[in-house]
């Protein structure tokens, strides 16, 4: 068995990160942004002693008179229409509480899921009592953000065939702002696996399955996924983690490029710092070449 030990200094990130020749001014908590005359206080700022100060470390942004400072890293802030991967934490009256990596747990109402029997089905007492048979604690689902409540918590819905309970696969957690917002967050990669890129930073990787249960509350955990698919899933997982370590945006093209660059390594070698660095670097170059 090979054991590889590398120095912490070998794991530095700067080399791959996009070089910024003239970085913008960075404010840290408590620093004065400007004097409060004629400006509106946005997120990440507060007023003290007549001047506008930052509450988080980040760069100032202006929209007309509104001044905001956004941190580079924070919990997921949901927006309507986002695709999220969620884990059920609790069942309460007519709803599920789900963890979505946000400040507060989201709710999934019994009325916002699709039950067998079509659109016009009435939800009665029996449905309420058998909620646990649809989704129980610990189950993973894919869903969409339906609305945002006043206290910042989210309400989800699963009223589409795209969404449903997740069966066999791998969950990868990354920073939520690394997921690039795009039209489609469901991708079938050419390697025979599908990924769901949740806007909340949860990424689901599963073997591509064409004949899925349309209602989506039945998952087959007995079926054996063949070794090839499992290896590909692990490869995608390792590649995604490499991209996230080097703070690269995660979307279909970047995953595809990184997968292509990763072919020269075995799946387990992808966990080493050198391989991660190499893949992130090559992917960065390819993306830059594409952009120009």
């Amino acid at each position: 068995m090979n054991i590889s030990i590398s120095l912490a200094s070998k794991k530095t990130r700067h080399a791959v990160l996009k070089p910024s020749s003239n970085p913008p001014i960075i404010f840290t908590p408590g620093e004065k942004i400007r004097d409060q005359t004629g400006f509106m206080r946005g997120h990440g700022t507060y007023v003290s002693a007549g001047s506008l100060k930052a509450t988080v470390a980040g760069v100032e942004q202006n929209i007309n008179k509104l001044v905001t400072v956004s941190p580079l890293r924070c919990r997921y802030n949901g927006e309507i229409g986002d695709v999220v991967i969620a884990r059920v934490t609790e069942l309460v009256h007519k709803r599920w509480k789900v963890d979505i990596n946000a400040r507060l747990d989201a709710v999934l109402l019994l009325t916002s899921i699709q039950l067998p029997g079509g659109e016009l089905r009435r939800r009665g007492m029996e449905d309420e009592q058998s909620m646990r048979s649809y989704l129980s604690e610990g189950d993973l689902i894919s869903a969409e953000v339906h609305s945002v409540f006043a206290d910042g918590s989210l309400s989800l819905h699963m009223r589409s065939l795209k969404y449903g309970k997740l069966g066999q696969g791998v969950l990868v957690k990354v920073q939520s702002n690394l997921i690039k917002r795009s039209k489609n967050h469901f991708h079938n990669l050419s390697a025979g696996v599908s990924v769901i890129l949740g806007n909340n930073g949860y990424i689901w990787i599963e073997p591509t399955n064409d004949n899925k249960d349309p209602v989506g509350f039945e998952v087959d955990l007995q079926q054996v996924v063949d070794i090839g698919d499992r290896q590909t899933i692990s490869r995608v997982r390792n590649v995604v983690l490499a991209l996230s370590y080097y703070k690269m945006l995660i979307y279909d093209t970047s995953i595809q490029y990184a997968l292509e660059e990763s072919n020269k390594y075995t799946v387990s070698d992808l966990l080493t710092a050198e391989a991660c660095y190499d893949i992130a670097n090559l992917t960065r170059h390819r993306l830059q070449a594409m952009g120009e």
Partner: peptide
């Protein structure tokens, strides 16, 4: 404060300074 700013200058570019306009 200096160290934080240096750290942010290093990782900020890749994250587009936390702004929404993503362009690679």
């Amino acid at each position: 404060n200096k160290i934080i700013k240096k750290h942010y200058e290093e990782i900020g570019g890749a994250l587009n300074w936390g702004t929404e306009e993503y362009n690679i």
